[in-house]
Amino acid sequence: MDTADLRIALFSGNYNYVRDGANQALNRLVGYLLRQGAQVRVYAPVVDKPAFEPTGQLIGVSALPIPSRSEYRIPLRIGGKARRDLKAFAPNVIHVSSPDPAAHQAVTWARRRGLPVLASVHTRFETYLRYYNMAWGEPIVEAILRRFYRRCDALVAPSESMAQVLREQRMNYDVSIWSRGVDRDIFQPQARSNAWRQAQGIGEGEVAIGFLGRLVMEKGLDVFSDSVDELRRRGVAHKVLVIGEGPARPWFEARLPGASFVGFQQGTDLARAVASMDVLFNPSVTETFGNVTLEAMACGLPVVAAAATGSQSLVDDRISGRLIPPGAIHQFAEALKAYVEDLALRQSHGSAGEARACEFSWDRINQAVADTYVRLIRQKQRGYNITPSTGSN
């Protein structure tokens, strides 16, 4: 068996109705698999006006908007039409990318038919509760996630640091890496534009501290703004450049008076905006990889990030950026101050980050997932019981 023999049923909670790093990675994966001759069917919620056209054939599943976050939807079940399509498609492997009710049903459907299930982990759902004053619920969510992931045959995580977290949480015993790539044709230092910077109110010689990502509280917007406040108290001259959209934008704009908000960007416009920063500040602890970190590194920027999953596998502390304990406002401010005031340091660490970014090729990365599908199918065919117990030990 090789990649061309694969028939993959992919279940996603968000495949294309909101644009984020996870669903863009899934679309890239599907595109790669189709080019290799594999057959893929995607089962996910559909909306009237998605953020972008899906790659491959998309079959809708029943879903409801998430309260207070209506841009996201929870897939509730595999309805009759989707279930009939799934049966007719006759996959030889199931891929689930979010631990939602429809994915639970997909895992059950696969187990009854002796099909292998691969789960990809895209975010640390248990950490989201911290941003809604519900940190007490993290152990409960972790237990729910453990039951789901241990019903799967294997997991893939975007970084070794995230894979290690999953092992420590006893989510599964078979955890491998599905990293992320970066398009070096557009994300490069040469994309920087002084004219564009000036149009955003960033003068020649001013240092722009950048934020890149969806504007939601779980991205660490409070830590970012508190650290910027600390820079102001220390009298460190700088500008703030924010790339992205989201429901927390009004809150973020109020917390960052004088910042340049350029909204959602994509393609060459995004690369230009990222390269036109001077340093990326990524305080989030929810990412499992950190696409924004890799894109900034490819543009030759130093990165100040929380020492959390994802960033720890990309940023070499004091070589290509700084890794700071999550929430450590004064340490974040000190790291940012060093980059603002030292051009040579910015250039040195930025060059090191660019060199590291050269290691990430999308085709090589996506073939690793295809190889995992093939391995799991072969193990099932040989009668190996590779699905762990759903117990907690």
Rank of each mutant, 00 (worst) to 15 (best):
residue 240 V to M: 04
residue 288 T to D: 06
residue 110 A to W: 00
residue 228 V to C: 00
residue 363 D to K: 10
residue 53 E to Q: 12
residue 84 R to V: 10
residue 17 Y to C: 00
residue 254 A to W: 10
residue 226 D to I: 01
residue 235 G to M: 13
residue 126 E to D: 12
residue 140 I to Q: 07
residue 50 P to Y: 06
residue 236 V to C: 15
residue 158 P to G: 08
residue 108 T to L: 00
residue 247 P to Q: 12
residue 165 V to A: 12
residue 108 T to V: 08
residue 276 S to E: 05
residue 250 P to M: 06
residue 348 S to F: 00
residue 278 D to E: 04
residue 141 V to G: 07
residue 7 R to M: 01
residue 285 V to K: 01
residue 341 E to H: 02
residue 1 M to V: 05
residue 66 I to K: 01
residue 254 A to N: 11
residue 332 F to T: 05
residue 19 R to T: 14
residue 189 P to Y: 09
residue 392 S to K: 13
residue 157 A to G: 13
residue 269 D to N: 11
residue 118 L to F: 08
residue 280 L to F: 04
residue 200 Q to I: 05
residue 340 V to D: 02
residue 49 K to Y: 11
residue 203 G to P: 11
residue 93 V to N: 01
residue 110 A to C: 07
residue 59 I to F: 06
residue 354 E to I: 00
residue 286 T to W: 09
residue 231 L to G: 07
residue 134 M to N: 11
residue 285 V to W: 01
residue 51 A to F: 02
residue 389 S to W: 05
residue 121 V to H: 09
residue 72 Y to P: 09
residue 4 A to G: 12
residue 259 A to G: 05
residue 80 G to S: 15
residue 279 V to S: 15
residue 66 I to S: 06
residue 16 N to M: 06
residue 120 S to P: 13
residue 284 S to I: 11
residue 12 S to H: 01
residue 48 D to C: 11
residue 21 G to K: 03
residue 217 M to K: 14
residue 92 N to S: 00
residue 341 E to N: 13
residue 144 I to Q: 08
residue 133 N to L: 13
residue 241 L to I: 03
residue 354 E to C: 08
residue 380 K to H: 12
residue 175 V to F: 01
residue 206 E to V: 04
residue 327 G to K: 04
residue 85 D to N: 08
residue 38 A to F: 05
residue 325 P to I: 06
residue 134 M to G: 10
residue 176 S to I: 00
residue 121 V to T: 09
residue 81 K to I: 00
residue 360 F to N: 05
residue 392 S to E: 11
residue 344 A to F: 10
residue 129 L to N: 11
residue 78 I to E: 02
residue 116 P to R: 04
residue 148 F to K: 10
residue 55 T to F: 10
residue 346 R to S: 05
residue 1 M to F: 11
residue 344 A to R: 14
residue 386 I to T: 07
residue 318 R to K: 12
residue 296 A to N: 03
residue 205 G to L: 09
residue 70 S to E: 15
residue 117 V to G: 14
residue 91 P to G: 03
residue 140 I to H: 07
residue 215 L to I: 10
residue 92 N to K: 01
residue 219 K to Y: 03
residue 310 G to Q: 07
residue 201 G to Y: 00
residue 67 P to S: 12
residue 209 I to P: 04
residue 35 R to A: 00
residue 266 Q to M: 12
residue 227 S to F: 08
residue 111 R to Y: 00
residue 215 L to Q: 09
residue 15 Y to I: 06
residue 331 Q to K: 15
residue 248 A to V: 07
residue 150 R to H: 09
residue 175 V to M: 01
residue 212 L to A: 05
residue 73 R to T: 02
residue 6 L to F: 03
residue 180 R to V: 03
residue 222 D to K: 14
residue 381 Q to T: 09
residue 331 Q to D: 14
residue 264 F to E: 08
residue 41 R to Y: 07
residue 69 R to A: 11
residue 139 P to G: 08
residue 283 P to E: 14
residue 354 E to Q: 13
residue 97 S to F: 02
residue 276 S to L: 06
residue 343 L to T: 12
residue 154 A to I: 04
residue 44 A to T: 11
residue 255 R to W: 08
residue 126 E to L: 08
residue 13 G to A: 07
residue 209 I to K: 02
residue 293 T to C: 15
residue 171 M to E: 04
residue 239 K to R: 15
residue 8 I to P: 05
residue 281 F to T: 02
residue 296 A to G: 13
residue 22 A to H: 03
residue 219 K to N: 08
residue 14 N to D: 13
residue 63 A to S: 08
residue 268 T to V: 07
residue 56 G to M: 01
residue 121 V to Q: 05
residue 189 P to T: 04
residue 226 D to P: 07
residue 199 A to R: 15
residue 258 G to A: 12
